[in-house]
Amino acid sequence: MLKKNRFWFRSALLAILVVAVGYTIYNSMNEESGTYISKGDTAPNFVLTDLNGKQVELEDYRGKGVFLNFWGTWCKPCEREMPYMQRQYEKYKDQGVEILAVNVSETNVSVKNFVDRYRMSFPVPMDKQREVTKAYGIGPIPTTILIDKNGKVVERTSESLSEKKIISFMEKIKP
């Protein structure tokens, strides 16, 4: 075999393997954060009834940044970040950022008490059948998904958020 051919053959084979393994690792990273929806995807539309009986549809928020949070009353880290979210919501709602705090399969009685206790004024869509939770591949809660004004997911995290972090998130999706 000619030396030149050998070089190209070897480079091509190495390149194929690097791409294949790289793509596999990239996919495995997404899987870790909960399979289906991740950074760069278009956030799938959903419709849920909120605590006040109002229909909340994600697509209606196109043009606004959406801070989509999945939570439960029994989850301590969720409870911790709620007051921060409320405080920042009051600052950012006039700047085109909406918070949707999707409750994962709980009863209106429990959630109502919680919402009153923390004086939450953003919509709390009730995912009773866990349909949205499943479709978004939510594992542990809280999970926060940031959606920009074009409906694209720009961030997904299962961390418990500090107020500082929430502010930086708000800035990120502000239209």
Binding site: L14, L17, A20, V21, T24, I25, S28, M29, E31, E32
Partner: peptide, 14 residues
């Protein structure tokens, strides 16, 4: 599913 394990398997394949 951990990146380094997949990387090891990839290196073994190579």
């Amino acid at each position: 599913g951990s990146w380094w394990f997949i990387l090891l398997l990839g290196m073994l394949g190579l």
